[in-house]
Simulated assay, not measured.
Amino acid sequence: MSLCADRVVVVTGAGRGIGRAHALAFAAAGAFVVVNDVSESAAHAVAEEIGPSAVVNTDDVADWDGAGRLVRTALESFGGLDVLVNNAGFLRDRMLVTMSEQEWDDVVRVHLKGHFAPLRHAAAYWRAVRKAGGSVDGRVVNTSSGAGLLGSVGQGNYSAAKAGIAGLTVVAAAELARYGVTVNAIAPAARTRMTEGTFASMMAAPESGFDAMAPENVSPLVVWLGSVESGDVTGRMFEVDGGRIGVAEGWRHGPVVDKGGRWDPAEVGVVVRGLLEGVSSSPVYGA
């Protein structure tokens, strides 16, 4: 019950689905929670469910000034900020040949900029605290996706944004370590308004009574990552769904051939095919 006692947590997109589950789980672990959602009614419903340890913020997290107000809400309401959980997002699924510029821009804005802007304002606060001689035990938990790790047919905009979040996570982890902040990411799978079509065949709970697609299954990992116990874990991507927690392995240096000089294009084919022998890759979702 006291894993996150008195820690101040911001959860974006907390009005419904996974974000709501995170907010409730952090509150149950003793945290003060800023419930952020652009739906005022949804945000207030979650805050009322939590009680006096929660406040509401309805700013657009992809708006620079709005993200700043979100961080200030935590500071003014609870006197600090310990944990930022970037969760807000939506879908505009379309095959690339029919995707509009607006559908691309909207998804990249909400997911990628919607992670960067709150992170940037939170990081500025933590840096200021450290420079003033204070102590920081900050946590950031970003939300990527299997689509960002492996790609997903019909979700080029979403996959690109979520892959960007994965890249942002490792850079932020490296840059913010000096201020006492860890940055990790999750790639969750759960039943939400965004995924109801994807997981339609898994909607009903099995006879065992364990609903593997319930959003609440994702939150225990996020709460732990937001706690003081997780200070030695940073720059990691975790896949989480049902009762499973896994570590995703990203791009890394693989086989290499060094000629010691410039290649002739005619030489490259046999080299590339040789490098690819025995090197497997996971298929794109939906391919």
Rank of each mutant, 00 (worst) to 15 (best):
L3N: 05
R7K: 12
V9R: 02
G13D: 06
G15L: 13
I18W: 08
V34P: 06
V34N: 03
V35P: 09
N36G: 10
N36D: 07
V38R: 13
S41A: 15
A42D: 14
A43E: 10
A47Q: 05
E49V: 00
P52Q: 05
S53A: 09
V56Q: 05
D59M: 06
A62H: 10
L70W: 01
D82K: 01
N87I: 03
A88G: 07
F90N: 05
R92H: 14
M95I: 11
L96G: 03
S100Q: 12
Q102H: 14
D105E: 11
R109M: 04
H111D: 11
H111C: 08
L112Q: 13
A117M: 11
R120I: 00
A122W: 05
A123S: 14
R127F: 08
V129S: 06
K131I: 06
K131D: 13
G134D: 04
D137L: 01
S145K: 07
A147L: 11
A147S: 15
G148S: 11
L149R: 05
L150A: 15
V153W: 00
V153C: 02
S159A: 15
I165T: 04
G167R: 01
A174E: 09
A174S: 13
V181N: 06
A190Q: 11
R191Q: 15
T192D: 04
T195R: 06
E196W: 13
A204V: 11
A204N: 11
A205K: 08
G209R: 09
A212T: 08
M213S: 11
A214V: 00
A214R: 10
V223M: 00
W224Y: 14
V233F: 11
V233S: 06
E239V: 14
D241F: 15
R244N: 03
A248Q: 08
G250S: 12
K259W: 04
G260F: 12
P265S: 07
G269K: 08
V272Y: 04
E277H: 12
P283K: 12
Y285F: 15
A287R: 12
A287P: 13
A287G: 13
